[in-house]
Amino acid sequence: MPDAIEQFVTKARLAELVAEYANLIDWIDWDRLDAVFWPDATFDFGMFKGDFAAYRQFVAELEEGYARRLHMFGLPSITLTGERARIDAGCVIVCRTDDPAPGIDDTFWGRYLLTAEKRGEEWRLSGLTYMLNLFDRTERQVDDRGGPMNFGDGLSPRHPFALPR
C-alpha cells in the first residue's frame, strides 16, 4: 500500500507541475519557470529547439505578443519509472492579437509530451516536446471588449486579478 500512496502523491505533484506551467504561461509570470523546469531542461516545438535559457527568450517573445492567452490542458497521462516520468497532456490554446483591430484569434490543438525527473526530494520537468494537431486562425469581426464581462486581456503578475505568490 505505501507504494500505491507514493505513486498517487507523485502523480498529483506532476499534474500540479503541468497546471503550474499552463498558468504561468497565461499570466506571463516568467519568474515561476525556475520552479517548474530543471535548469538543464530541453525544449522542442519544431520551429524552436533549445535549452532552458533559449526557451525563456523564445516563450517570452512568443507569448507577450498576444493580448490574451489561454492554455487549457486535459488530464495528463503519467507514466512513472523510478525517479523519471513521462507525461502526455492534450491541450487547446487560444491566443488573441489586437493588430489588426479588432484582433485575430489563433487556436492550437495539440499535445505536450513532457519528461520529469526527481532530484533529491523534488520533481521538476526536464523536457518538453509540443506536437501540433490542428491550427485555426479567425479574424475578429467585432471588438468584444465593450461587453459587461471581465476579459483576460493583459494578464501578468501585476494584473488586478492575479493571485499573490
Rank of each mutant, 00 (worst) to 15 (best):
D3M: 08
A4L: 15
I5Q: 12
E6L: 14
E6G: 10
F8N: 11
V9C: 15
T10E: 07
K11M: 06
A12H: 10
A12T: 15
R13Q: 14
L14G: 01
A15P: 05
A15K: 07
V18D: 12
A19Y: 13
A19T: 13
A19R: 11
A22D: 09
N23P: 11
I25R: 10
I25E: 13
D26L: 01
W27Q: 13
W27H: 14
W30Y: 15
R32Y: 08
D34T: 04
D34F: 03
D40R: 03
D40A: 03
A41E: 11
T42L: 02
D44P: 05
F45L: 03
G46A: 03
F48M: 02
F48Y: 05
F48I: 04
K49H: 05
G50I: 01
D51G: 01
F52T: 12
Y55A: 00
R56S: 09
A60W: 07
E63P: 05
E63T: 10
E64A: 05
G65A: 07
A67Y: 07
R69C: 10
R69T: 10
L70S: 14
L75N: 14
P76R: 06
S77Q: 11
I78K: 07
L80K: 14
G82H: 01
R84I: 03
I87P: 15
D88K: 09
A89E: 09
G90E: 13
V92A: 15
V92S: 09
I93F: 03
I93T: 10
C95L: 11
R96Y: 02
R96C: 04
R96E: 13
T97R: 10
T97N: 10
T97S: 07
A101E: 07
I104R: 06
D106Q: 10
F108Q: 09
G110K: 00
G110Y: 04
R111E: 14
R111L: 00
L113I: 04
L113Q: 09
T115M: 03
T115A: 06
A116H: 08
E117S: 06
K118F: 00
R119F: 00
W123E: 14
W123Q: 06
L125A: 01
S126N: 05
S126H: 04
S126A: 02
S126W: 02
G127L: 00
G127I: 02
T129I: 04
Y130R: 09
Y130C: 07
N133R: 09
D136M: 00
D136Y: 06
R137H: 14
T138M: 06
E139K: 15
R140F: 01
Q141Y: 05
Q141N: 14
Q141W: 04
V142M: 05
V142Y: 03
D144M: 06
D144G: 10
D144N: 07
D144Y: 05
R145F: 05
G147I: 00
G147H: 11
P148M: 05
N150G: 06
G154C: 00
P157S: 07
P157R: 09
P157K: 07
P160D: 12
A162L: 02
A162Y: 08
A162F: 02
L163A: 15
